[in-house]
């Protein structure tokens, strides 16, 4: 069998070698006109128009009742978040201050509802972290309710470790990712 195969291969090679090589085809060069220079444009550029700069409107702070207003008035990092220690869900004094101001603001705008989103850092398994981040969101909701916000205005959602705000794998990044975000929903302006 092996011998037969070799014979076959040799036969094919011989056949290939017997084919005549085609003559090379020589092409005549195509005639090309000499390039003719194009004259430069003669029209002059239009004069530059001078426009008076508008007078800046002084910043009067965020619009009352807007998300910006909420973030501006509730302190902390100014992003609506409070932060937690590793594997913990209790609120620090700083967090309580931020949440008191959030509650105060929410009490001024009674038609605003919010989703409280709990987050965990990446150093935990997925399902455990979903439960841990849910606890964090619930801590925040309970505190806001204790400050007078109607529980029906607050929905809690756990994102576990699915929504990090910092992709790093170091203490500073993990600390940022262990948080709860008070996210305004219907009723807020702007």
């Amino acid at each position: 069998m092996r011998v037969k195969l070799i014979l076959l291969v040799s036969a094919v090679s011989v056949l290939a070698a017997c084919k005549t090589t085609p003559e090379p085809v020589v092409q005549d060069p195509v005639a090309v006109n000499q390039p003719v220079p194009i004259p430069a444009p003669v029209e002059q550029a239009a004069p530059v128009q001078i426009v008076e700069a508008p007078t800046p409107i002084p910043y009067a702070g965020p619009i009352a009742g807007s998300l910006e207003d909420f973030l501006y008035n509730s302190g902390g990092n100014g992003d609506g978040r409070v932060f937690f220690a590793y594997n913990q869900y209790d609120l620090s004094n700083d967090s309580r201050d931020v949440l008191r101001r959030q509650a105060q603001w929410l009490q001024s705008y009674q038609n605003v509802t919010a989703v409280v989103e709990g987050n965990a850092d990446e150093r935990g398994t997925r399902e455990y972290n979903l439960a841990l981040a849910a606890r964090r969101a619930d801590s925040v909701k309970s505190f806001l309710v204790s400050q007078g916000v109607a529980p029906s205005r607050l929905t809690t959602v756990s994102y576990g470790k699915e929504r990090p705000i910092d992709g790093g794998s170091n203490e500073a990044s993990w600390a940022k990712n262990r948080n709860s975000l008070t996210n305004l929903m219907s009723g807020s302006i702007g």
Binding site: E127, A131, A134, R135, A137, D138, S139, S142, S158
Partner: peptide, 9 residues
């Protein structure tokens, strides 16, 4: 499955 109620699963 796990059900989350008031921060307790």
């Amino acid at each position: 499955l796990s059900l989350m109620k008031k921060g307790n699963s």
